[in-house]
Amino acid sequence: MATVSIRNLVKAYGKTEVLHGISLDVADGEFVVFVGPSGCGKSTTLRMIAGLEEVTGGDIMIGDRVVNNLEPKDRDIAMVFQNYAIYPHLTVRKNIGFGLRTSKLSKPEREERINEVAAMLSMTEYLDRKPGQLSGGQRQRVAIGRAMVRDPAVFLFDEPLSNLDAQLRSQMRLEIKKLHQRVGTTIIFVTHDQVEAMTMADRIVIMKDGSIQQVGTPAEVFHQPANAFVAQFIGAPSMNMLPARYSGGAIKVAGSSIAIELPLPDGSELTVGIRPDDLIVSATPGVFEGLVSVLEPLGSLTLAHIDIDGADIVAVADGRTPPAVGSKVHLAVETANLHVFTPDGEALR
């Protein structure tokens, strides 16, 4: 087990800088998830930690060693790849054992270790099969087993669940989380799926365009997003963003006025963010009123798209008694649940 520290990490391909000096400390045994849209630099960061990409600038430390110039094999890490990277011509046993090739264990010890890992992943009965005879989830488990067998200080996961179907993905999500609780090894996990990040992480690192936007627990990044990007990226459906203006101790937004104290001069331009589940659809007059344009039933709840003063707002309505399309509805929101951002996206509250 080990800590991982990143100091001002920079990556450039020729003149194009793709990672602009990021810093992060991962505690021993922590489960950290890097999340962000495609091309944000999360996978590059992970591959640099693994030693598969060279470091352009800054330092990577695993434990108390700077590993910038160490070969991947000398970093005491293991990695699970998106396409599993398990060898189709080898049996599950040999695939899992591949990571032990260079270990100093004796043959019976290796066998024991492979069996132990296989048992932990419920793969014992598949040990003599080849990957072609396994399902997607089982292949993923082989890939994890291959990483686990070496008992590394840090596990690196590079979008390991993106090739699985939705049901299997949520099942594997849970399994990986349980595994972490059992073995307690430091995990750095990369995904583009914010649900994966929220459900698994001790801490989430949200990245965009080669910079870290926010680091925090799932609750922190959800309830106190650092900027408009984080606010919209985390949470599904996405946060509603409405242009607004501050004047006279109130925010003027979508034809309504909400009294609130902000440290801003009168007439400042703002963006107001409201999560769909903080908007309460009601029959009695609230803050906003508008016409229901589209309904998206999800079973226990229904997403209602409401046209307010030309702006499309998503609100969560009851699943059993949703408002009718075309009907006029009132929306209430607690002032405490309002997010306010400056025009360049920084969170004010």
């Binding site: 000398d74 990695m79 990277a85 591949f98 260079t102």
Partner: peptide
């Protein structure tokens, strides 16, 4: 990734 995985395995 087959080669990368092998590199990590050393």
């Amino acid at each position: 990734s087959y080669y990368e995985a092998a590199r990590i395995d050393g």
